[in-house]
Write a protein that binds this DNA or RNA. Structure first.
Lengths: 185, 185
DNA sequence: AGAATTAAGTCAATATGACTGACATAAATT
DNA sequence: AATTTATGTCAGTCATATTGACTTAATTCT
């Protein structure tokens, strides 16, 4: 199998498009800062999600299941409505995935104490163990990614990621992730 | 519209699952480092891809089109095979998306000079302009994300992202992204 | 020159994860 | 009593991806 093989990805022909324009093609005028960051993010995120994807494939589950499992495990007793808000998907999309997780004994629904309309979500013992396995995979990758970087790099990455998020959502997300570190300047 | 609304995401009930285990539920024993990084990455990447997603929705294009457009624009004259290797999708998946981009006058295919089997890919003038627009959106977000961080933070983020990638792919990806900065220690 | 390999494209069938819009039920709130 | 909220469900659709088989043309290998 040829694995990744984009050995000749960079062509010798540098003509980008019809040379009908009067611009020099590669004159670093106003354009391409952070091209590399854009692409590194793409590849990094792909591999980051790849670990749990592969692990879940054995259970016939996909990334959607992972996301639901993760946030339920992290927020035991979360309401369906709030989970929908976090994931920003529709009730229908969640419904199918959630049903499969419940049927598989990964997630449990309990009636709300004060409000009996609610179906509060919890991971079962099995579900919690699975969630931990998946988290461990991603933690291992994160640890590896921080090796060799100066002290405090994890804090810089945290702040970078937070500021990548739409400003409007940041405070909600901060509450949700409840980082053990500062982040609050 | 209730926008994001996960105000009550964190339940007061902290029982994670059946308390049938002898473990204290929240005793930070061996487990949850980088929980926040895992979640920040999820939200950051979603918003990062959201900008181009929204922009492309007007053209009836999706994220798959963006990826193809991006890598063709960055690697003019790339072979179909190499593009498949970069995106790690199948010929069939690429085929449909590529056809739509060609039909829309965004991407152009030219016969290889030395090897006439090849259909080398180029962005058209329009395609290049569109790619630049989308890139600009993401660059703006990246710039904003680095504001207020110490000097050299961009370099730390670059190294972090590179080390998030599977070690086997790193050298190929480094060639591809051809970062203007160091990254090579 | 003939065989094997490579580059690209195509066909059919399928799966996953998402969507919209409408509707239903029960419970809580006003 | 009327309204709103929380959840679930139905039917239909779409975008992106998959597998496996097969074709055509061109290049390379022996």
């Amino acid at each position: 199998m040829t694995d990744i093989n984009f050995k000749s990805a960079i062509s010798t022909n540098t003509a980008r498009h019809e040379p009908a324009e009067g611009k020099p093609p590669e004159a670093g005028d106003e354009s391409p800062l952070f091209y590399d960051l854009i692409e590194l993010l793409f590849f990094a995120y792909r591999d980051f999600t790849g670990d749990p994807d592969d692990a879940l494939a054995r259970f016939e589950f996909g990334r959607a299941h992972h996301r639901v499992l993760h946030f339920v495990d992290r927020n035991p007793g979360i309401m369906v409505t709030d989970l929908l808000g976090i994931l920003r998907i529709t009730k229908q999309s969640l419904g199918r995935v959630l049903k499969q997780l419940v049927d598989a004994g990964i997630i449990e629904q309990r009636e709300g104490h004060h409000d009996r309309r609610q179906r509060l979500l919890y991971t079962t013992e099995r579900g919690h163990a699975l969630a931990e396995d998946l988290t461990r995979l991603q933690q291992t990758r994160l640890e590896r990614a921080l090796i060799g970087l100066p002290d405090g790099s994890d804090e810089i990455v945290r702040r970078f990621l937070l500021q990548m998020i739409d400003p409007d959502s940041r405070s909600d997300i901060l509450k949700l992730v409840r980082s053990p570190f500062s982040l609050k300047d």
